[in-house]
Design a protein around this nucleic acid. Sequence first.
RNA 1: GGCCCCAUCGUCUAGUGGUUAGGACAUCACUCUUUCAAGGUGAAGAUACGGGUUCGACUCCCGUUGGGGCCA
Length: 489
Amino acid sequence: MKQDIRVRIAPSPTGFFHIGSARTALYNWLFARHHNGKFILRIEDTDATRSSKEMVEVILTSLNWLGLDWDEGPQKGGEYGPYFQSERKEIYREYAEKLIKEEKAYWCFCTEEEIEKERQYYLNKKMDWKHRCREKFTETEKQKRMNAGMKPALRFKVPVEKRISFSDIVHGVVEKNASDIEDFVIIKSDGMPTYNFACVVDDFLMKISHVIRGVEHIANTPKQIMLYEAFNLPIPFFAHLPVILGKDKKKLSKRLGARSVLEYRDEGYLPDALINFLALLGWSPGGDEEIMDRERIIELFTLERINPANAIYDETKLEWLNNHYIINRIDEKTFLTSIEPFVISSGYITEEEYKKNREWVDRVCLLMRPRLKVLKDISRAKYFFTDDFEYDENSLKKYLNDKSVSLTREFMVVLKELKDFNAHNIEDSLRKFCEQKAIKTRELIHPLRVYITGTEAGPGLFETMELIGRARCIKRVLNIIERYEHGTS
RNA sequence: GGCCCCAUCGUCUAGUGGUUAGGACAUCACUCUUUCAAGGUGAAGAUACGGGUUCGACUCCCGUUGGGGCCA
């Protein structure tokens, strides 16, 4: 009978929920879903001064946006709660007591200064040093320090003769001598548990079967294993994920461009595209398959196929993937509802106007669709919405000249008389006009585009003109011509 | 300083002793085209280094270098 799969993520609400945290969450979630297991969210908020409620919200919102639903945790509850570590102090204390009773932990009465001095001493001598103060003080000295108001920290009595070994699913066998590990603190002098201690207690009580987390914790794992052994608890499986590095090969940090998941949302990345991208950052299904929806990734995902090497995070592929999703992986309706908030936040149009002209706005968005890397790029469509847009200087230099001006002015007469001002008719008349003039169509199309949109790049000119409308097109052209002829340009 | 982890094109990766080392993004060229995208075709581009093991190593072992991390 296979053991129930239960995994967890345990973010601290102290910083932003960035790409790295999101990927750890994703891999845990994928593993749980693949095995029909449970995905648990536990908030590591033991650092009261740095934790905040807002950051908890950020975590929940980020996970929700990504569509990584958790089975137990905040907002969901569950039979192994509470899921906030700050509410579990009593539990940790209880477990600490056990270790004290069995003499597997002891109180450390050293002051920080003393420890620092000791460290410096050995460092200067270039000697290896591990803090162990098991026999350092007599009972009377301890009492004396207590009376002086000192609060001791609880240290774990490392079984120095042991060699700790575990088999990591990603990295294989990892070994370490216990003698290389100091008698680490498990309860700080302020009464709070340290990461390693709380983690072991919680993972056990929450019946976590697989611990899937970043490699930065691989060095913590031997400590945790010693703790499991001290408590005589079953040891979970471990899978340590490679770290995501920035372009400078340094760990992603806020300073070096690490961005919060919510920023991706606000720029108009599609959650599915981000999920697909993140899944491929450190994992691959084995073949050449790259574009995969959630169901497909869940189906194919295994921890064994995780690449142990650190990955450098390059956003260009994400942009490409997002554009690909915008064009090919969502239907028209989904696209239009997804882009709505970005149209409104562009500020070119009020929500009311949007509702009134929905059909027209939708056509603009559809026209822009293949050109959008992120939904926010809809802001480039400014010239559809308002006459108050900027003209690109270089483009004007190129196309605002006597010849182009006279051509376009003449063509305006044709436009004025056009029956139906639609793309087809505009194109038709323009081609005929050019034929009569014996010029290439581009000689008219390019200046016309610049006069009407202010830029050389954009969707097809005829569709663009139809949407902008006859009156505004002609007005823009005449305005820019006037500007040219009065030398104000 | 000690300990731990890692190493295939610029980037993400496939590959598990015998391959012209495959794919994707990015780059470049061509193509399509009214521009920009998108699309199509193609080019260029990698096994960090040095030793072993082996008939044969990208692949296994050791070392070096480089990167990342933990102790902090």
